[in-house]
């Protein structure tokens, strides 16, 4: 409640002006975020740049030869083994994102439109398995699908099959099932959020103008929730392309994906530049597919109107 001692007017002015600059929103805001920003810069952006640099180098035993070369990319894109792995990873992740989104949409719709007072309880119920260890969830699918596993023994117990099926585990279908389950919650949330933003009176307006429940859904709700569907598809697709644990545990020979090959280059094979090139290629392809997905869904959205 007491006033600060005042300096000479001239000094007061410059101090006020300097304070004004230091107290200006942009400066304070940027100062506050800079530790986190720097952390992400040093531990994310810089490492990715290092990976990109490595992808243009070569390795002789333990020394890195820093002459620029595209040889690693030639191998990554033309060697049948890597080409096949890339294709399979893409196929698996696209299939998984398709299934997760298709399966998730009705749930998100149900919670958003019919969840009533229990909306957040439903969301909690659906997201909590996602917070358990990814490794454990993949492991439980191994338990279910295994030769001596839950499904085989259960089906045999019911008399559906006579001997354990080997078709369940160690193939790409097992990878797809496991990943679809593991990423389910990730697909529900963005769709739910976009459905929540749909103005309910718009749906009522459509019905008032003569649309039945299905037509009003197709003409109003679905197009308006398209951004959520797009982000759900991407948020599932991008990480699953590079999944390592699932193919390793339930994929067998038939279900190996690109991440396993990348890991091998940094482990046993010890060819960092090739591993880097495979990583960069994966990132690039993911980016292209993501862009294409956005484009296709946007076009579809426009045509649907």
């Amino acid at each position: 409640m007491t006033a600060a001692a005042e300096g000479s007017p001239a000094f007061g002015m410059t101090r006020a002006r300097r304070n004004a600059l230091l107290q200006s929103e942009p400066v304070q805001g940027f100062a506050l975020i800079s530790p986190t920003f720097l952390y992400a810069l040093i531990l994310l952006v810089l490492p990715i740049l290092v990976v990109i640099a490595h992808s243009f180098w070569t390795q002789n035993y333990l020394t890195i030869d820093r002459t620029f070369t595209l040889e690693n990319y030639r191998i990554a894109l033309t060697e049948p083994i890597y080409r096949d792995l890339l294709w399979r990873s893409l196929y698996i992740s696209l299939t998984v994102s398709f299934f997760t989104v298709v399966l998730a949409y009705p749930i998100a719709y149900f919670i958003s439109f019919h969840g009533g007072r229990h909306k957040s309880l439903w969301l909690f119920l659906i997201t909590i398995p996602f917070w358990t260890s990814y490794l454990l969830r993949v492991m439980s699918w191994k338990v279910i699908l295994g030769y001596n596993g839950v499904l085989n023994s259960g089906l045999m117990g019911l008399g559906v099959i006579d001997e354990p099926s080997t078709a369940l585990l160690y193939n790409s279908s097992a990878v797809i099932i496991t990943l679809t389950h593991a990423w389910a919650a990730f697909a529900i949330l963005p769709i739910f959020v976009s459905l929540e933003k749909v103005d309910r009176t718009l749906v009522e307006a459509a019905k008032d103008l003569g649309d039945g429940p299905i037509r009003s859904f197709l003409r109003v709700t679905l197009p308006l929730s398209a951004p959520g569907v797009i982000s759900a598809a991407l948020i599932v697709m991008i990480p699953t392309v590079g999944d390592y644990v699932t193919p390793k545990l339930v994929g067998g020979k038939d279900g190996v994906m690109i991440a396993n090959a990348i890991q091998a280059q940094f482990g046993k094979a010890s060819n960092w530049p090739l591993g880097a090139a495979l990583s960069v290629t994966t990132m690039l392809i993911v980016t292209l597919i993501a862009g294409a997905t956005v484009l296709i869904l946007r076009t579809a959205q426009r045509l649907a109107r």
């Binding site: 290092v50 990976v51 590079g242 991440a259 994966t282 990132m283």
Partner: peptide, 12 residues
């Protein structure tokens, strides 16, 4: 993809 985060950190 987690593998990208992991290997890029490892390299650095």
């Amino acid at each position: 993809p987690e593998i990208i985060v992991a290997i890029s950190l490892l390299l650095v």
